[in-house]
Simulated assay, not measured.
Amino acid sequence: MRILHTSDWHVGRTFHGQDLLGDQRQVLAALAELVRRHAVDVVAVPGDLYDRAVPSVDAVGVLTAALGEIRAAGAQIVATAGNHDSAPRLGAFADFLAAGGLHLRTAAAGVGEPVLIDDEHGPVAFYPLPYLEPEVVRRGFGLQGRASHQAVMTAAMDRVRTDLSGRPGARSVVLAHAFVVGAVTGGSERSIAVGGVESVTADVFDGVDYVALGHLHRPQTVTDRIRYCGSPLAYSFNEAGQSKGALLIELDAAGATTATPLPLPVPRPMAEIGGTLAEVLAGYQELVDHYLSVRLTDPVRPLEAMRRLKAKFPYALTLQWEPPAGAGDPDVESFGAAVAAAASDAELIADFLDDCRGVGPSERETAFVDQAIGLARAGAAVGR
């Protein structure tokens, strides 16, 4: 059986205010093309299909279209809820959708009940484990006292192994949304720790042939049979250098697996650049269509820096001013003396601007300050 392992789509996510639905539409369509090209039987999605519990109408449309394209390409889909998803909303009409080849398992009560899909060698039991919040599910799992991620995942896998023991010869795949010890975060994940340790050990997944993990956005191998495929898009500048894609898992008749990374297109690359504003504006022509994080090193904070950057780099998203050591540092004593010696409000504001950015107000700014001070005084006089 050929399984395409993909996760953490986060449909509806924005990136520093930038709408990513167009990028997500493009990369999810590429997943359907991978299904077609590699004759994939099942697409496994272990959580975070949406980025928020109540997705926008447009996000629902993008996800619906993507799932439809994957089904049309010939694969069945097995998916579960992540910590970003609303399990009840995502799992609505699951029984009806299963008849069309979309198997959504999002409720903790259904843990241990497999989705059975046959190939020429017999059945493969897929066990989707939704994100399990310890304090929410501990009673349903019969756990006493305060629960942990390790305890609830152990209880969930005990149910899986119990069911699997009654299916001799069946191969098994677990989908889990979890942080497994030894793995490394990508930089854009939301922590799942609520008053406790969020990680689980890899040995809780003993006894199954393959574990398709979701939650961490960096693709990585925990063991040969326990893997994260990572997110299909970079969602942080920390992820700019990561190779994004999906994993093609081939499961043979004996349950042995091979994993092949399959790259996905990058709709708009990310980059981090730095220098003085003049240097940045004069260079980096090859990055005009990238999402950019810009670090400016001017000794004096440049005026309207982001506006000037966006005139050349329309996808500049973040800006930091990091002057050379000592430059731009506030001189508390001199500013305090200026406050004491200031003859007027206008002088105080001028001294403040000079102290913060290394240059006093321009003529236009001075006129604006004078007008604002006049209006404030007039308002105060009327209030008396």
Rank of each mutant, 00 (worst) to 15 (best):
Q24V: 06
G186M: 03
I349T: 10
D329Y: 07
I77K: 05
L97Y: 14
E333I: 13
G112E: 04
R225K: 12
H217N: 07
P130Q: 06
A178S: 08
A202Y: 05
R139D: 15
A79V: 07
G274V: 05
L31P: 01
G82Q: 07
D206F: 07
M270R: 04
E304I: 08
D298M: 07
Q371A: 15
L34V: 09
R138G: 11
L247R: 02
R13T: 01
E363I: 06
A39F: 10
T64A: 15
L309W: 04
G17S: 09
L63I: 01
A81S: 12
G255T: 04
G110E: 15
V382N: 13
H217T: 01
A212L: 05
D224M: 10
V43M: 13
M153R: 06
L21T: 08
R71N: 07
G383R: 15
I70N: 02
E189G: 03
E120I: 12
H103R: 11
P302A: 03
V194T: 14
E347L: 05
G283W: 12
A65R: 03
I192M: 09
G166Y: 10
Q76S: 12
V280H: 00
G166S: 11
F335G: 03
D41E: 13
T154I: 02
A72I: 10
T366P: 09
V115S: 05
V197S: 11
T185Q: 14
L213D: 00
D209I: 02
G195P: 09
A340G: 09
T276W: 04
P267L: 02
P302R: 09
A271C: 04
R146Y: 12
F335H: 03
I70R: 00
T318E: 08
M157A: 11
D51A: 11
I373N: 10
H149W: 04
P123H: 14
G110N: 13
M1P: 13
T297N: 12
E322H: 15
G255R: 04
D351M: 14
